[in-house]
Design a protein around this nucleic acid. Structure first.
Length: 789
DNA sequence: GATGTTCCATTTTTT
DNA sequence: ATGGAACATC
């Protein structure tokens, strides 16, 4: 795994505060560390581990459970600096369970080479289960059923327990699908994400000897982000802390943001009830943020009812006021933020990595990305799973999965006709029927394809050929990943298939992705030369999370969701789209508890900022295709306006330095400005837009049309588009770089392209200059123009 | 059976 | 806007 250095320089334990020292010194018995944002929680936990080691606790008796690999890594790195060479187990809950489950797979009816289905795999499996269960999905959907089942598993509800309960419609449907789905998973020797926890929790509950063995094996357990644990996770740590109740959990109820995934905030709120003799430590001193940022955060979170009241204290100096800014639309918002960052880098000596832009949902990163790219501002989008969700990567990995676990039906269905080899939907359906009818896996059914009466000989032959190809491939399973992948690519002629099926000729990114996967395989081979690396590789791939993609060594502006931002910190933070229906999201507005969670999400975002913070919202936002009027988030009303600096769009001729005037009066000066803080639906702008939108295009009043970008049909150029195009004018489109092309670089002069790889912002070209030097450039940022031939 | 077309919903957040 | 699924055509 990559080694990322922590930003915080470790100091010795003398410099811990009294509260921190108290937590560090705690040895036996349960402990609850209520740690506010930026309170040095990771530092406390690592020092405590070091302390335990020092007093003679063997490293293998300690386990630290986190929610992301990133957090585990960070902890590991820090521990390495204060207690080097100690083999303390650190990792995510899911990885911990995956590991236990490998060992005790047979006890839950799995084989040790079981596969972990990712979300799309389990969705496929779900569809098949729904069909097999013969239920109607007329008033529900596969997604809804999946959600109900997921929730059930998180709450340790088994298929049997779900029967016979009085349920709502989609729950009743789910209750019928659930047992079928579980049976199919077992037959496929597979688990979904929830099963990792579910199986382990059941294992511990049903096998007292095993439970006590593991309890004594893991005598000291630490859980990070305890506020985000669900019932299954709760049950797991609880049953590992009976004989040796040395469970130390850290968390902050105010940062509980995974309720939608089954996390139960009561786990942390009731911890003291669960463990009567618990030692509770509150870390309330904040080392991260300027006081004005903390006051804003504090004011906001005070509006929640389900919480433990907590102070946020800091010694830091007062900083610049928090900015609350309104823009005309998302494009202006993105452009302005890009400009602000560019200016700060030029004039204030900031570096790209000092900045982060947070949003409620991934879709909002698009416009920001565009603005950054057009300015040559280096950035990283933190969504680690993206690469592994690309078609070509999923295809190849599906072959890997099938080699590792031939029962993996989802993988087989994915690849049996990829590349196309004449096995169509009908054949697959017959194969599936045969498998279902005889309780076989799809591969076993395929091995007996000549016995399937419904199958034409022609199809049976094709299927047999596929099985033969697969068997040849399987022979490579014990070799290196590189060897396996190369063999696979050759046997299936996959690259040719990609070239043939790619829609536009220019786009060779699928091929570049294949190369990137190859690189990853080689790298994994290098790191884990032992046997069995295929399984380990697939497990690692299955359990990567978005946050894991964050690279703090990289000098780039970071773009991510607030969920992904938890646990991180940046000197300057922008939070975009602080708008009603987005934050809080409209789906969460019915339930006051969910609204509180949304408020906590904003709290998490705000408290990531060290020095400066800007919250912004727009008058209009392009979402789901078209530009719609929006209003500011009700949360903005909860902030102490007198402490903030409010900035309106320039072209409405309004500029308010600070908050006193920020209310009604500000807006009434200009009749055109919408009352963004007013949630009522009858705001002037809303009506105006609606009204105009109903007119046929040629009847649009010219004046209004000119003023409202909202009314410009997609495809026409907006001012923002034009601007961006201009600045890109002389640059070569990314995908136009070809080997042998002659280019010109500002600094190095003329050169020839010798290699191109990567895609999107990572697209890179190697160029040999006339001086003889060769250099690689990220094309999105390099200053390259077309050279003379 | 393969390929192309249209239509549809779908998007909150993620291990 | 995008991608998947259903439908139509070769």
């Amino acid at each position: 795994m990559d080694v990322a250095r922590g930003k915080v320089v470790e100091t010795n334990s003398q410099q811990l505060t009294a509260a921190q020292q108290e937590a560090v010194a705690h040895q036996d018995g349960p402990m609850l560390i209520l740690a506010g944002p930026g309170s040095g929680k990771t530092r406390v936990v690592t020092h405590r581990i070091a302390n335990l080691l020092q007093i003679g606790v063997p490293a293998h008796q300690i386990a630290a459970l986190t929610f992301t690999n990133k957090a585990a890594q960070e902890m590991g790195n820090r521990l390495a600096t204060i207690a080097p060479g100690q083999d303390v187990w650190m990792g995510t809950f899911h990885r911990f369970c995956a590991r236990l489950l490998r060992r005790y797979a047979s006890m839950v009816g799995l084989a040790e080479n079981y596969s972990i289905y990712d979300t799309s795999d389990s969705k496929q499996a779900m569809k098949r289960a729904i069909a097999a269960a013969e239920v109607s999905t007329s008033h529900t959907s596969a997604d809804q059923i999946a959600a109900v089942i997921s929730r059930a598993k998180n709450r340790l509800v088994s298929p049997e327990m779900m029967q016979g309960q009085s349920l709502r419609h989609n729950e009743a449907v789910a209750a019928r699908v659930y047992p079928v789905y579980q049976k199919q998973l077992l037959l496929s020797n597979a688990v979904d994400f929830d099963d990792l926890l579910f199986h382990v929790a059941n294992l511990l509950r049903e096998n007292p000897e095993l439970r006590s063995e593991l309890d004594s094996r893991y005598r000291y357990i630490m859980v990070d982000e305890y506020q985000d644990t669900n019932l299954a996770q709760y049950a797991i740590v609880r049953s590992l802390s009976v004989d040796y109740p040395n469970l130390a959990v850290t968390g902050d109820p105010d940062q509980s943001i995974y309720g939608w995934r089954g996390a139960d905030i009561n786990n942390i709120l009731d911890f003291e009830k669960d463990y009567p003799h618990v030692k509770t430590v509150r870390l309330e001193k904040n080392y991260r943020s300027a006081p004005n940022i903390l006051r804003i955060a504090d004011q906001l979170i005070k509006h929640n009812t389900r919480r433990k009241d907590k102070q946020l204290l800091t010694d830091r100096e007062e900083g610049a006021p928090v900015v609350l800014r309104m823009y005309e639309d998302g494009y202006r918002e993105a452009d302005d933020i890009a400009d602000q960052i560019t200016a700060a880098i030029q004039n204030e000596g900031c570096r790209p990595q000092d900045f982060a832009v947070f949003c409620r949902m991934n879709a909002l990163t698009r416009s920001v990305e565009h603005a950054f790219r057009s300015r040559g501002l280096p950035y990283q989008i933190v969504n680690g799973v993206e690469f592994y969700q690309r078609k070509e990567i999923k295809d190849l990995l599906a072959y890997f999965h099938l080699v590792n676990n031939p029962a993996h039906d989802v993988a087989l269905q994915r690849v049996i006709n990829v590349p196309t080899r004449g096995i169509g939907a009908k054949s697959i359906e017959r194969l599936r029927d045969f498998a279902d009818g005889n309780g076989l896996t799809l591969l076993d059914a395929a091995r007996n394809s000549d016995q399937i009466e419904a199958l034409p000989t022609r199809s049976a032959t094709k299927i047999r050929q596929f099985v033969e190809m697969f068997d040849r491939l399987s022979l490579k399973a014990t070799g290196s990943l590189e060897e396996l992948l190369l063999h696979l690519l050759e046997q299936t002629d996959y690259r040719a298939f990609l070239r043939k099926s790619s829609v536009d000729e220019q786009d060779n990114s699928p091929l570049a992705n294949v190369d990137e996967l190859l690189t990853a395989a080689v790298e994994f081979d290098r790191q884990f030369p032992e046997d069995g690396s295929l399984e380990a590789f697939l497990e690692q791939v299955a359990l990567v999370s978005d946050t894991d993609a964050f690279d703090e060594e990289n000098d780039r502006v970071t773009l991510m969701t607030m969920h992904a931002a938890k646990g991180l910190e940046f000197p300057r933070v922008f939070i975009i789209g602080v708008e009603d229906d987005l934050l809080p999201h409209y789906r969460s507005k019915e339930d006051p508890m969910q609204v509180e969670e949304e408020r906590r999400l904003l709290f998490v975002g705000i408290t990531r900022a060290e020095e400066r913070l800007q919250l912004s919202c727009c008058k209009r936002r392009a979402l789901r295709g078209d530009l719609r009027p929006v209003v500011g988030s009700p949360f903005l009303m909860e902030l102490p306006r007198e402490e903030m600096r409010f900035i309106e769009p320039e072209d409405s001729n309004q500029f308010f330095d600070s908050g006193d005037e920020f209310g009604d009066e500000s807006f009434s000066v200009d009749g055109d400005a919408p009352e963004i803080w007013d949630q009522s639906n009858d705001s002037a702008t809303t009506n105006e837009i609606d009204e105009v939108c109903q007119l046929p295009p040629d009847e649009l009043p010219a004046k209004k049309a000119a003023k409202k970008p909202a009314l410009i049909p997609a495809g026409l150029k907006t001012a923002a588009n034009l601007l961006n195009e201009q600045s890109n004018d002389d640059k070569i489109p990314l995908n136009d770089f070809r080997n042998g092309m002659i280019v010109h670089h500002e600094e190095y002069g003329a050169g020839k392209v010798t290699a191109v790889s990567g895609r999107g912002p990572k697209r890179t070209a190697t160029i040999e200059f006339s001086s003889g030097a060769a250099r690689s450039f990220r094309l999105a940022f390099a200053k390259l123009t077309l050279g003379e031939q």
